[in-house]
């Protein structure tokens, strides 16, 4: 096995734009790595996203300009990265964003290379120069694990967005290497049509400082209206649990939890939400949590600073009056 003394980062590109997590990963790697930091970028033939990436100062950028691959699916990307690694040798580590793209591509490449991958890391550091120590949560963030991959390379990881801060860094010696002749194997099983998701006009729940969240119990028109009135009064944004995305007015952008959004408001008010782990995984960064539920044993109460046992709608109305 040919080894390459470099630490690699996969640049995530969503519709011709570098996902900011890529910059966060570069800044972090620059801080912790004693080996050269290389970014692998796949982009269309007319793009030059390497210019944006350069501003964060990696040691090297490997640019694969290929229109077909820039639209590639997980299998095509895996083939391309595998071919690249065949040429360069196996890097010491290879980290990806823990986004849908990274969490789909990285494990496929892991299996191709038969190495170890740690998903969803919250922290990374190196020991003895090249051992990557990966800290990952499990059991819905109730347990933290430290994982290492002692005998296989690359040591792979996906890393959650926004746990590291991106800082621009002027590195005059950043090298850009263009690879134009990479063989691309087309996967004819899948036809993919991509379009941008409509941007929310209102304040998004991921940015909101105050959130009123409603659950399945609040699906009636009247309860919704009540929750919205409370949200107005508080200058808060409405968030929902998964079942409410069945309604036309809510979608995945409004949904809090593992399959929706992670939120970090100053205050979160949960109305009629029981607190299944798929939901609570999205609220661990909320500062103050208030919950109202009829079930005195609702799991959500454990996550709450303040809780009310009783009808959530009555509580919501009472809260509205208390705020007059």
């Amino acid at each position: 096995m040919e080894l390459l003394k470099e630490n690699w980062i996969f640049a995530e590109v969503d519709l011709n734009k570098v996902n900011p997590i890529t910059y966060q990963l570069i800044t972090k790697m620059n801080q912790i790595s004693n080996l050269p930091v290389t970014v692998v970028l796949i982009e269309g033939s007319n793009e030059s996203l390497e210019d944006d990436i350069k501003e964060y100062g990696p040691d090297k950028i490997i640019t694969i300009k290929n229109d077909q691959l820039a639209q590639g699916n997980d299998l095509e990307m895996t083939n391309a990265l595998d071919t690249l690694i065949d040429k360069t040798g196996r890097p010491n580590s290879f980290v990806f964003a823990a986004t849908v793209v990274g969490r789909s591509l990285a494990p496929r490449l892991q299996a191709r290379l038969r190495t170890g991958l740690t998903a969803d890391c919250l922290d990374l550091h190196f020991e003895d120069d090249d051992t990557l120590v990966q800290t990952k949560p499990s059991y819905g963030d109730n347990i933290m694990c430290e994982i290492v991959v002692p005998n296989h390379r690359p040591q792979m990881a996906t890393v959650r967005s926004n746990v590291f801060e991106a800082k621009k860094f002027n590195n005059p010696s950043t090298k850009v290497i263009n690879i134009t002749n990479l063989k691309v194997v087309k996967d004819n099983q899948l036809t993919i049509l991509s379009k941008p998701l409509p941007q929310e006009s209102a304040e998004s729940i991921t940015e909101a400082s105050r959130i009123v969240a409603i659950g399945r119990g609040d699906k009636t028109e009247e309860n919704l209206t009540n929750a919205k009135r409370l949200a107005d009064k508080l200058h808060a944004v409405i968030g929902v649990t998964r079942p409410l995305t069945d309604l036309d007015e809510f979608d995945i952008n409004d949904q809090i939890g593992q399959s929706g959004q992670s939120v970090s408001p100053d205050i979160l008010i949960n109305l009629g939400i029981s607190g299944a782990v798929q939901y609570t995984a999205g609220i661990s960064n909320a500062k103050t949590i208030v919950s109202a539920n009829t079930d005195k044993d609702a799991p959500i109460f454990k996550y709450s600073d303040y809780y009310y046992v009783g009808n959530a709608e009555e509580f919501s109305k009472a809260l509205e009056r208390a705020l007059q």
Binding site: V133, N142, I143, M144, C145, E146, I147, V149
Partner: peptide, 10 residues
Amino acid sequence: PSVVRSISSP
């Protein structure tokens, strides 16, 4: 290939 070196409660 992966080794869980330690676990802890955050």
